[in-house]
Amino acid sequence: MPDYSDKELLALFKNVEKRNYAFNLIVRKYQEKLYWHIRKIVIKHDDTDDILQNTFIKVWKGLDGFREDSKLYTWLYRIATNESLTFLKQKKTKYLLPIVDYENQLKETFQSDEYFNGTEIQLKLQKAILKLPEKQRIVFNMKYFEEMKYDDMSEVLNTSVGALKASYHHAVKKIENYFKED
């Protein structure tokens, strides 16, 4: 796969004849990053697959109007995050359960999930992460696992860098306490 920059990909997409090719390259470039980002929010592979497809369909529909005010990478992350949060909300309304209950259900799925190969520590960490409030969970995952810069996170989540730092700090403290208590 040729290594195109985001700007080159966008320029290629604007060429109607090469649109499909450019989109294919965008999918290939970002599918893994977005998949893992979504997977850490919704946990199950099948749900992640649905959300990733919806994300790229939205990208396809919206890319024509993308004005490059933000980076392509942060724009893609924003769509993926919003799709994941919408999915969680739908789950909550579908089963008339508070979101905490759905996340408690998710904790139980780790053991039976054939696509979870974590160690005992990793399993415990995932369970601790699921105890965090939704926003803190996303911030923690983006910083701890994806090592995203606060500036980029700020663009994705539309939150100030200061608030993100505080959110990450609180998340770390809660996880430390979870490990201490258990």
């Binding site: 998949y35 696509y115 190969n117 974590g118 490990f179």
Partner: peptide, 29 residues
């Protein structure tokens, strides 16, 4: 003992514990 480790000592825990079905990323595009 391992579970009681402090967060700062959880080196390696930030590795991705999830996996995908075989050929998933090849077929997805």
């Amino acid at each position: 003992n391992e579970s009681n480790l402090k967060f700062n000592n959880l080196q390696g825990a930030n590795k991705n514990p999830f996996s995908v079905p075989e050929g998933y990323f090849e077929d997805f595009p």
